[in-house]
Design a protein around this nucleic acid. Structure first.
Lengths: 349, 349
DNA sequence: GTGAAAGCGCTAACAG
DNA sequence: CTGTTAGCGCTTTCAC
């Protein structure tokens, strides 16, 4: 038994307004969109009718004509992790401010799914895309970019390509962390990361680590780095296990650099269970400054990605492109800062 | 200088397919939607043309006819907090599985904004709504429900009304927490919550606390409860301050019940800074089981809201309604469980 | 300044 | 079984 009419009843259309106001349909359209001059008299009558009948134009029908719906899509791997959802929040704010509707497409870190969702949306009613992919998918994004649909790549830099991009400088960011740790007298700096196959972002961080080492005349020691597919964003257990095994091997750095706050959480716990005090015995540094880095024990010193700002800037860029505004800079690099809390201190003598 | 054509070029329409396949457009439509029988011969020709021209039907145009777009909206206050985003994740999974597109409307906990967004979407292209409001807005939701648009209310129970609803039993949940604590010998059980003005959910939790007390013959002591607007979901500082002041007053319960894990985080810290050991001196219990309750020190014992499941069930219910399936139960109550970790132990003698 | 009418891409009668 | 045709609600020429 159907509980609802299958078809939504559109109670009042432009026709009704025209009729009620005693004008032509086109006139109504013209006052709504301010596309032609209309005498204030007729205008008033139209506005009045709109008010009285509580009319709102149907975006669908408009979209059919204009091929635009003031709707943009953000393609993300996963909204439930803190980093992504905070960036999306920033995106959303701008969408609302500029009167666009936002659609979220979740890919679960799956390239194929990304392509599928995008294709579905592409021919439908989307004015533009923010690809906040979480993995490299250059070929695909390029393809849609070349179809002339407005696109911005967020958090992923495709180097030479002319695709509009907003990113942080991952290389410089991690390098600055190494510097920071060096400043505290650390000479044996460990590094914990997930693997960076298909992850330019993560690879650049590793290069930043190498760069920081080099700048400070520190030798790279592979025994100090743990790069493993065991690192997960949604739970600490496997991170914890991996880190504990790593610690058991006995070569302990005086400070750890971590490529995501979540890893630092697992590390903190593993360190504690192996009998190390943070930061007295070993310092720990995170990356991201997600909400919960203020909740750890000790409070996590970390590199802040300005998440909300990243979202704002990406969305503004996309909308500027959609609206045909002049774009000064298609590649925007957002600065990062280090948030000093409690988990880093001077290296033991 | 416009960088893009303002109008998206729709490269291939149903007409082109019809032409290429040498059939009428209605036939093409019929094979796409399987609305009428078509000989496998013609069908093949059509499918072939679709394939060759890489055609995908335009949802907008279809929506204009059918008043349906296989798109549903979720109205949330805020996607960036862990609880909401994890539930949304569950919603999203089902949307994808059943081949619907999901739109997110964020209200920033603002009733007016909720109305605005919903109205925008209402006349446009949305087949149904999940109101995951975060505050009471019964009158408004009722209004859209009565317009015959498919609606489900998530996490908010409107009592006698016939609006389809999926919730946890907040009363029973908190009551079970009191029982749990009582079982560990606690007789002075503190309670920390935000205010519950316009928040049925939160009010019911408080009633659950009272109910639990009563059941176990414990007297209600107002000095043991802290209900304050200082409690925030996005930062601990103000929670921390409020709790510290509370502790300074000197009447310390042997266990605290907290209405959100995030509050427990602030509490944990305040307790530590006031010189209390958890759980040796005082036990702490959270509510929600958000991701980060596995990261605290000690690990947080908490009541689990099955977030993903809540999302799944709500979305399935909504889609069933949209598709006119028979609904056995319009009010679904999802059971909760207690996750035993480290922050609760036996009361001191 | 305003109106009439064509048509966006599609579905759903209605014919055949 | 398949084709023709009339709209869905709106914008946009083209007339007046």
């Amino acid at each position: 038994m159907a509980q609802y009419k299958k078809k939504k009843q559109i109670d009042v259309s432009i026709k009704d307004i025209a009729h009620k106001a005693g004008v032509a349909i086109s006139t109504v359209s013209n006052v709504i969109n301010e596309t032609r001059f209309v005498t204030s008299q007729t205008k008033e009558r139209v506005l009045d009718a709109i008010e009285k009948l509580d009319y709102r134009p149907n975006i669908i029908a408009r979209g059919l004509r204009t091929h635009s719906t003031r709707t943009v899509a953000v393609i993300v791997p996963d909204i439930s992790s803190s980093f992504f959802s905070q960036v999306i929040n920033g995106i959303e704010k701008i969408a609302r401010k500029r009167n666009y509707t936002l659609i979220l497409g979740c890919t679960s870190f799956d390239c194929k799914e990304e392509a599928r969702i995008t294709n579905v949306l592409l021919d439908s009613f989307i004015d533009g895309f923010i690809f906040f992919s979480g993995f490299d998918n250059y070929e695909f994004i390029k393809k849609v970019y070349e179809k002339n649909v407005p696109v911005v790549s967020l958090d992923k830099d495709f180097g030479e390509s002319s695709i509009p991009t907003v990113v942080i400088d991952n290389f410089a960011a991690v390098k600055s962390c190494v510097d920071y740790l060096y400043g505290f007298g650390h000479r044996k700096i460990g590094y914990i990361s997930f693997t960076y196959d298909k992850q330019t972002t993560v690879r650049k961080r590793f290069e930043g680590y190498l760069g920081g080492l080099e700048k400070n005349n520190l030798k790279f020691d592979p025994d100090l780095v743990l790069i493993s597919p065991e690192m997960r964003l949604h739970e600490t257990t496997s991170t914890y296990e991996a880190v504990r095994n790593f610690l058991k091997k006995g070569k302990i750095p005086t400070a750890f650099l971590t490529v995501a706050d979540v890893f630092a959480f697992g590390l903190l716990r593993a360190l504690k269970d192996e009998g190390f005090k943070v930061p007295e015995d070993v310092s720990v540094m995170g990356f991201d400054n997600i909400l919960f880095s203020q909740f750890t024990e000790p409070l996590l010193t970390t590199l802040k990605q300005p998440k909300s700002l990243m979202g704002n800037i990406a969305m503004n860029l996309l909308l500027d492109i959609i609206e045909g505004k002049e774009i000064k800079d298609k590649k925007i690099i957002i600065p990062t800062t280090i948030i000093e809390r409690e988990s880093v201190t001077f290296a033991k003598k």
